[in-house]
């Protein structure tokens, strides 16, 4: 005879209550299609996003990173499970969750100032004209674009466009910043400069920030916690890594920090191992033909003068 299990004890009742999460993801599942053609992109995502933290989600391309971010932004709704922001289900995009994409979605006919002002005017329509103007200027200065405020997007470098997107989002004063690989289209040097910039701004404002990245070093530099997104299909979250490094952080100094080195090794090893496992699982299922290499040497090259370029 089997009867119901004993009720679950509530161990949290006796502890000082932890601060409630600003965003809660509970058993979130998201896929596309239906029936036999259905593919699950994300499965069983559980995550608490803490108020004021910088959280990095680190994953491979094709692991559902963008789907994950669109769920948080409210651009997609979960098939199963719930996403709560301050206790309320997220049902649609809202200005309290600001999203910055890899591809800057600036309006090409507006200047830097115009692009930022457009958002500020729509969100803070109850403010006076003067207040809104001062607010726009403050954020142009914050991202170091005062000298370029009159330029249009096509007159800006990639880094400057991304600064503009960032200023536009920050100026809307969202409760949560969502950064979807904001720097991955930039070259290494620009990327490093913008990382420092984002870090500096975040350390001033301490807004809750969720950033998706594929770069372990970038994640460690900026984040309080790092969650790996295991490769899909059916991507799931790995364990949370705590980044216990003092702030403000400096990339050069970190290179000599023992915690940094160990953490870098731990996350890299974790990601390499999950990827290997998912490849092995894939290979075990695939029915690719096998080839035996014939014993053949290339023909004498002297007959050839044309390059074969790869």
């Amino acid at each position: 005879m089997t009867t119901e299990l004993a009720p679950e004890p509530n161990f949290l009742a006796k502890r000082p209550a932890p601060p409630p999460p600003i965003i809660e993801m509970r058993g979130v599942v998201k896929g596309y299609g239906s029936g036999v053609t259905r593919t699950e992109v994300l499965q069983n995502i559980n995550l608490n996003i803490r108020e004021g933290e910088f959280l990095a989600v680190c994953g491979f391309s094709g692991s559902g990173k963008t789907t994950f971010m669109q769920l948080l932004a409210g651009l997609l709704l979960p098939d199963r499970g719930v996403i709560l922001m301050e206790g309320e289900p997220i049902a649609e995009p809202a200005p309290d969750r600001g999203l910055v994409f890899q591809n800057y979605s600036l309006l090409p006919w507006l200047t830097v100032r115009g692009n930022i002002a457009l958002s500020v005017d729509s969100v803070f329509c109850q403010w006076s004209k003067g207040e809104r103007r001062d607010h726009v200027e403050k954020f142009i200065t914050l991202v170091g674009l005062s000298h370029a405020a009159h330029r249009r997007p096509h007159e800006l470098s990639g880094g400057m466009r991304q600064r503009t997107s960032l200023a536009r989002m920050l100026a809307m004063k969202p409760k949560v910043l969502l950064l979807d690989e904001p720097l991955s289209a930039l070259d290494a040097l620009t990327r490093a400069q913008l990382q420092d910039e984002i870090l500096r701004i975040w350390e001033e404002e301490r807004q809750t920030c969720v950033m998706i990245t594929n770069d372990v070093d970038e994640a460690i530099l900026v984040a309080d916690r790092i969650v790996p997104l295991n490769p899909g299909p059916r991507a799931s979250l790995g364990p949370t890594f705590a980044v216990d490094l003092p702030r403000p952080r400096n990339r050069t100094a970190l290179n000599h920090n023992a915690t940094f080195k160990n953490l870098r090794g731990a996350i890299t090893n974790y990601l390499v191992a999950v990827r290997t496992k998912s490849r092995d699982d894939e290979a075990a299922q695939s029915v690719a033909p096998t080839f035996v290499l014939p014993d053949l040497r290339p023909k004498d090259l002297r007959a050839y003068s044309k390059a074969i370029l790869n």
Binding site: N48, R225, P239, T240, F241, A242, N262, G265, I267, N269
Partner: peptide
């Protein structure tokens, strides 16, 4: 090394 950096929520 991995375990030493990991935190598990309730």
């Amino acid at each position: 090394n991995v375990s030493s950096f990991v935190r598990f929520e309730y």
